[in-house]
Design a protein around this nucleic acid. Sequence first.
DNA 1: ATAATTTGCGCAAACGATGTCGGGAACGTT
DNA 2: AACGTTCCCGACATCGTTTGCGCAAATTAT
Lengths: 344, 344
Amino acid sequence: METFTIKDIARELGISTSTVSRALRGSYEINPETKRLVMECAERLNYRPNPIALSLKGSASRAIGVILPQIANYFFSQAINGIEAIAYNRGYHVIIFQSQESYERELANVQQAMSRKVDGLLMSLSSETADVAHLQEVLDKNVPLVLFDRVSAELHVTKVVADNFGGAFAATEHLIQSGRKRIAHLTIQPWLSITQERLAGYRAALEKYGLEFDESLMRYGSFGPDEVGPMVDDLMRLPSPPDAFFTASDRLAVGCLQALRQRNLHIPEDVSLIGFTNLNVADLLAPPLSTVVQPAQEIGQLAAERLIDQIERKHRALPIETVKIPTELIVRSSTMTNSEMVKL
Amino acid sequence: METFTIKDIARELGISTSTVSRALRGSYEINPETKRLVMECAERLNYRPNPIALSLKGSASRAIGVILPQIANYFFSQAINGIEAIAYNRGYHVIIFQSQESYERELANVQQAMSRKVDGLLMSLSSETADVAHLQEVLDKNVPLVLFDRVSAELHVTKVVADNFGGAFAATEHLIQSGRKRIAHLTIQPWLSITQERLAGYRAALEKYGLEFDESLMRYGSFGPDEVGPMVDDLMRLPSPPDAFFTASDRLAVGCLQALRQRNLHIPEDVSLIGFTNLNVADLLAPPLSTVVQPAQEIGQLAAERLIDQIERKHRALPIETVKIPTELIVRSSTMTNSEMVKL
DNA sequence: ATAATTTGCGCAAACGATGTCGGGAACGTT
DNA sequence: AACGTTCCCGACATCGTTTGCGCAAATTAT
């Protein structure tokens, strides 16, 4: 089935394209009979308006752009699912871009999205992104923008994030309550909002229980698969080595687990391990991994909803706000105490 | 920075838009000096051609569409990475659509992609897709199409697939050689090419070792998270229950592992388990999972390369072929023999 | 010196749809 | 009968870009 245009309908019915156009949308000044004819003909020809032409004219493209660090990441792929679900049943299409954690690519992605005339933009910042001028430009062009997960404090926009402070606090508190005293914190780039919030939660829990914050137990970075091992070695060589690891991301949790196992460090006998992760196989790992779960799908859904609300009610500005979603601490074997282990 | 058009350059230089257009794409009939001026001006204004307008004109959009069942799947998200990598450094953008395993949505995705004037389409079929007329239409419109992983025999197009037969054969042979005789095969929808090929590999291995193919050990379907358990129960109640499970997908492998553990069936003492999976934590599971690995990223890369080759050399048709990529059998604890277990 | 060719560039149409403007027909009003 | 309204609808410009055609000036050939 070929693709018909408004012209085909016009020719078929012997009327002008303008009439067809108006009949098809704003019904205001068109003879009902004519309208019926047009509708019927459009139906018959299976007419679909050309989104490209619509975009050129500057009207809504009914597409939203999603720019995030990478898809091959449990958290983000689940978030995309949430976004897609909402977008789909509100009649929007989703165009996904990966920044691959590169500022340069993020920039290119934003430009692409803008020139493809998306109606709005949903973003989670790349880890390289320190400057957000490119996003300010988006706002200046009056294109709705919603940030999720990796957000920037410098932008006055709606944000949807997990309760990172609360999650980190709960995880750290749990470790402390299970008898750990030297808790290493492996985390990502220090300038990211989520990093700072999680660090704050970690420190707050330490403080609550009168434990000193020890800088030497912290490690920041974007760890590749082979970098976690050396870091663990480094930490374990400390005069007073850690008895627990709290990691701030999916990849770190898995990398850390792997590194600890390779080094014959037993979990949780030698060290505890807990991570922020959305890994759906966390309970099938050896040992089952305690985690702080962020509801990724829900975050995606909420972000998409806010964005589309903004798109559709562009006139009266919707309130800017930061939506914080609770995280959930799930305790599994990787953070058991030795006495708990014995009972098994 | 606002967005400038070819007109702005024309006005700036006091020449016509045609000249600017031709200068920009290096047409022969333009004064080198003028060309230089235009180039310089475009550079200065940070001119970017409007992809929408280009698409409207029918020329290349330098975007390729990717339609696949779902992103939140280890195999597909890795494949996307491969696709993106190639596309990016050949100057193409990738627009991703998820069919969510629904034929209807796949159809809508194809239409969307076409109306967004992608230069080519990369697809892996939804599990509901039995009829491929919508793809034949794509071909009829002369839009390059490359299928990967889930392909259809009815379409005469380039396909990139893993060696499903070989992988299934190797997995089954390995199970047999480790002493298993009643090998259950849990697989996906029967009409998919990959299902058939894997089944064929499984049967071939059985035959080679003189084992009878037993229909009652087979299970087809799209198993939700809670459906694998009952199926396992069902199988284990057989008069002669399976002593090994060979699963055909990521999700099935994990679901099966979970179900077996919940039922206190020990792996590999009670039953062996091996799966087709791209799970990158397979060796961290309990027990470490033997798998047939399909090089997902490589599949994505090859598919993207073939597609872009086709796009760029549209005139002389490139040969249609099916690229088969070897799979790799990785043996871990989940398929050990009891004697091997003892040695540990 | 004149004719023929080449060179460099502009005009206008086209892609598909929308929207502004204005005009013809049919009606009602004095 | 002349005018004002209303109702429908078409011509045309527009979005940003490419492209066929044509035209003037510059160059070459005769």
